[in-house]
Design a protein around this nucleic acid. Structure first.
Lengths: 217, 217
DNA sequence: TTGATTTACTTAACGCTGTAAAGTAAGCTG
DNA sequence: CAGCTTACTTTACAGCGTTAAGTAAATCAA
């Protein structure tokens, strides 16, 4: 009515474009809501109790609708874990960026590691005990900020070696020693009746002391 | 016919007794066969793939017959794990009984620990990663030979402290340090793509070296 | 504006799971 | 020989992940 041919055409195109964008956004929103419900239910029920049908019920959709947004149950849980890896990596990175001596930084990284395990036990179990194999998968698109957590520790060790604050030795050996120690503590705490939460940090600090005496030149 | 009253009576009693014994033995046999099938299937399929109905099928009984011999699936798997704990405890005890210095013995115990994890990965996962809470349960009757594995390590540390071979320090700290380290290595190997089997023993020995330098007086 | 097509989702169904309750056949007992 | 116990099976239920078929609404071409 109030526009010639070509103008009407472009307006129509723009409308179509906006409509498509709105639809795409709605899809993203729904996907995010599925992921949110999945995360909440996972944090309540853990890996064993986690159920696709309950996730669907929580968001008011049919069970099979989830398959339109995630490959399967495994894929959905994988994305739940990815949020954990992001948060975990940030915690470690923050500790690594703290000022102080190399040993202090390494100790702080381990402490951040341990506290993550205590704060989010179900996530930790999923990420490093039950489905640690996901660490071998390429990071899906949209999760680029997931930090290579092992790399953070490794770099902190490397810095200590470079600056001479750590006794010369194999980078991999030092890194794996620190990692195995803190993961051992956390996972034994989470999986067994040993090492209750109250003693865990104290135990860790004393371990650091024993190990650290030796890492010093 | 060929015996007076009292003799016949005792014979009958003996027959009844034998019959009851045979029945009791048959029950034990069947229970053992269930446990055997369960162990075999568990070692094939692991914790996640383990199914009561498949155990029943393997021994040619109906699914519900298992409930006549075990409380439920959890109870059956618990007894599968108990066999693992027995074997694990023996391995550790053997290493602890080896002659040598305290540090050598401690190193040998850890090596036995690590090799158990490599030799029976599914059992290790069940015992220490997935259902480590069973360690807090009282040992069921018939499994008295299950050795307190943590105690074996603890005693070896104590011996080293007593003899002056280890630098004076807290028993619990030393013990938990060694345990957390080797469990960390094994469980990260089993659960993640890091620490493949080929490097695991080497890594462990180098960790022992670093830690041991410090445990020495 | 209308008819065809695509999109987004649901319903129905399959085969599997652990487990409780009811049924059954054999053996033992008085 | 009747009655009870033992040992096991059959049936059934509620839940699970997942596939395939069906449906209603939105979009598009004319």
């Amino acid at each position: 009515m109030s526009g010639e041919g070509t103008a009407t055409s472009t307006r129509q195109q723009r409308l179509q474009h906006n409509s498509a964008e709105r639809r795409a956004q709605k899809k993203l929103d729904l996907r995010q809501s599925m992921l949110g419900a999945a995360t909440a239910l996972f944090e309540r029920d853990g890996f064993e109790g986690f159920s696709l049908r309950q996730v669907a019920e929580a968001i008011g959709y049919s069970p099979t609708s989830i398959y339109l947004y995630f490959r399967d149950k495994e894929d959905l849980l994988h994305h739940v874990a990815l949020e954990g890896f992001r948060s975990f990596g940030q915690d470690l990175q923050r500790a690594a960026d703290q000022p102080g001596s190399a040993r202090e930084r390494l100790c702080a990284i381990g402490l951040a590691y341990l506290r993550f395990g205590l704060r989010r036990p179900l996530h930790y179990r999923l990420m490093f005990m039950v489905r640690g194999d996901w660490l071998g998968l390429p990071t899906p698109s949209g999760y680029d900020s997931v930090i290579d957590s092992f790399g953070v520790l490794e770099q902190a060790v490397q810095r200590g070696l470079d600056s001479g604050e750590l006794r010369p030795g194999d980078l991999q050996v030092y890194t794996s020693l620190l990692w195995a120690n803190v993961h051992g503590l956390v996972s034994l705490h989470l999986a067994t009746p040993y090492f209750p939460a109250e003693v865990l940090e104290g135990l860790y600090l004393q371990h650091q002391e024993v190990i650290g005496r030796n890492l010093s030149p």
